[in-house]
């Protein structure tokens, strides 16, 4: 039986037995190579589910949709390892109870699909530890090194050219499982901390605020980067900030549902290299 068949069967069983009230998975999209989020409540519909290498969205953000978990019933969800890490962070930040989440895990390695064993977040701890030790080198490594090698002026010019494209559609924020704030700081106007206008300055402010707020929380699922309609390489920012918290605090986001948030906790032996 293919992984897709196994997973459809598992989803159908979970729904039929009443263990979960809904399955959040992937269905066919508007073109043959697109997949989209699919919400299934009946075992009969499990045949609509797809699992393959095209299933790249991190669906964990839907878990914190208003009201979904408030009845304490369980929800099944298809997740890649990054998505499982997102669930850990959401749990660590008190946004959900991990016991309510039944994970149907899968991974895509070198373009091919692999099933992941387990269903609760703790079942994946050793997998996540392995990921920390073997952080994959992104294809963009050359570009990252190029940017690192730039003078501050050149680097500023690079990001200025990118951020001048931003239209403040906030797709990067809306698609991100970690951006669950009921009212984002950019939507506050009393006082207005950040320019709402989408001029280059306002775009810089927005993207910097987001980079800082996601540091140590981003799992590099790539959702924001794929969502950005004007193709700003947001993955480069995420990668840089993830490396930063890893180097400074040995923090790999989403290791467990009890992991302390790195920028919202304090340890006596924290390095203070950045405090002047």
């Amino acid at each position: 039986m293919s992984i897709q068949e196994q997973y459809r069967k598992r989803a159908a069983e979970l729904l039929a037995s009443g263990e979960v009230k809904i399955i959040i998975g992937y269905g066919a999209g508007s073109t043959p190579d697109r997949r989209r989020a699919l919400f299934i409540r009946s075992a009969d519909d499990a045949s609509l589910l797809h699992v393959d290498a095209a299933c790249d969205a991190n669906l964990s953000g839907y878990l914190v949709s208003e009201g979904l978990l408030s009845d304490r019933k369980k929800v099944g969800i298809f997740l890649r390892p990054e998505g499982i890490r997102s669930v850990n962070i959401l749990a660590a930040e008190s946004q959900l109870d991990p016991l309510q989440i039944v994970i149907i895990g899968f991974n895509v390695e070198n373009g091919s699909l692999a099933a992941l064993q387990g269903s609760g977040v703790n079942d994946f701890s050793s997998l996540i530890s392995t990921l920390k030790e073997s952080r994959s080198t992104p294809e963009e490594q050359a570009l990252i090194e190029k940017i690192e090698g730039m003078t501050p002026e050149e680097r500023f010019a690079f990001w200025q050219a990118e951020f001048s494209k931003c239209i403040k559609c906030y797709a990067c924020r809306q698609v991100c499982p970690m951006c669950y704030c009921k009212r984002c700081i950019v939507d506050n106007n009393q006082p207005q901390w950040v320019h709402t206008s989408s001029h280059t300055l306002g775009n810089f402010e927005w993207n910097l605020v987001r980079a800082f707020h996601l540091s140590g929380r981003c799992v590099e699922c790539g959702g924001c980067d794929r969502a950005c309609p004007v193709n700003i390489p947001l993955r480069l920012i995420n990668r840089r900030m993830a490396q930063e918290v890893l180097d400074a605090f040995d923090h790999f986001s989403g290791m467990s549902h009890t992991q302390e948030p790195v920028l919202a906790s304090f340890k006596k032996d924290d390095p203070e290299t950045f405090i002047l």
């Binding site: 989020a37 699919l38 403040k168 559609c169 906030y170 797709a171 809306q174 969502a227 309609p229």
Partner: peptide, 8 residues
Amino acid sequence: MRCIGCGT
């Protein structure tokens, strides 16, 4: 249901 409410 899957709309994330962005401005795209």
